[in-house]
Structures are given as structure tokens and as C-alpha cells.
Computed example of a mutant assay.
Amino acid sequence: MSQRSYSGLFVARKRFDQHRRQLLESLDPSGPVCRLSSWNLLMNEVEQVVKGWP
């Protein structure tokens, strides 16, 4: 891959990360997303990790 391609991939990745962050920030964690089993699994796993913190 050329240097130009790598820089294009970097820009695309950075934009994707920014858009993902914006989407997650605007998500209501108590809203309709609670009906998704994958969301509940994620929340349970995060809760277990946080409980293990000192």
C-alpha cells in the first residue's frame, strides 16, 4: 500500500471513531436500547468489571 492509502485509512478510521463516540454519547442507556440482549450483556459485563475496581 502506498503512503497515501495509509493516510486515507487513518483519516477514515479517525472519522469512524468520532462518529461512533458521538452516537454512543447521544444514546439513552435507559431507552429502547435496553430491549437488546447484547446491550444488557455489555452493561452486565461493565458492571462486573467496575465492581472489581479498588
Rank of each mutant, 00 (worst) to 15 (best):
M1W: 07
M1G: 10
S2C: 07
R4L: 15
S5I: 04
S7F: 08
S7R: 15
G8A: 13
G8W: 15
G8E: 11
G8V: 01
L9N: 01
L9C: 06
L9S: 07
F10M: 04
F10E: 05
F10A: 04
F10Q: 09
V11T: 14
V11Y: 14
V11E: 08
V11C: 07
A12I: 08
A12S: 05
A12F: 02
R13A: 15
R13S: 13
K14D: 03
R15D: 02
R15C: 00
F16Y: 08
D17F: 10
D17N: 14
D17M: 15
Q18E: 12
Q18K: 11
Q18T: 02
Q18G: 01
H19L: 09
R20V: 06
R20M: 07
R20H: 06
R21F: 05
R21I: 04
Q22S: 13
Q22N: 14
Q22V: 10
Q22R: 15
Q22L: 13
Q22G: 07
L23W: 10
L24K: 10
E25W: 05
E25T: 11
S26P: 03
D28M: 08
D28I: 01
D28F: 09
P29V: 12
P29F: 03
P29K: 10
G31C: 02
G31A: 04
P32F: 03
P32G: 06
P32W: 08
V33H: 04
V33Q: 05
V33M: 04
C34K: 14
C34R: 13
L36T: 05
S38D: 07
W39F: 13
W39V: 08
N40H: 11
N40Q: 14
N40S: 09
N40P: 03
L41W: 06
L41K: 11
L42G: 09
L42T: 07
L42I: 11
M43T: 08
N44G: 06
N44L: 07
N44W: 01
E45P: 04
E45S: 12
V46H: 00
V46P: 00
Q48N: 11
Q48G: 06
V49F: 05
V49S: 00
V49A: 07
V50W: 00
V50S: 02
K51R: 15
K51D: 13
K51P: 00
K51A: 13
W53Y: 15
W53D: 09
W53N: 13
P54V: 03
P54A: 10
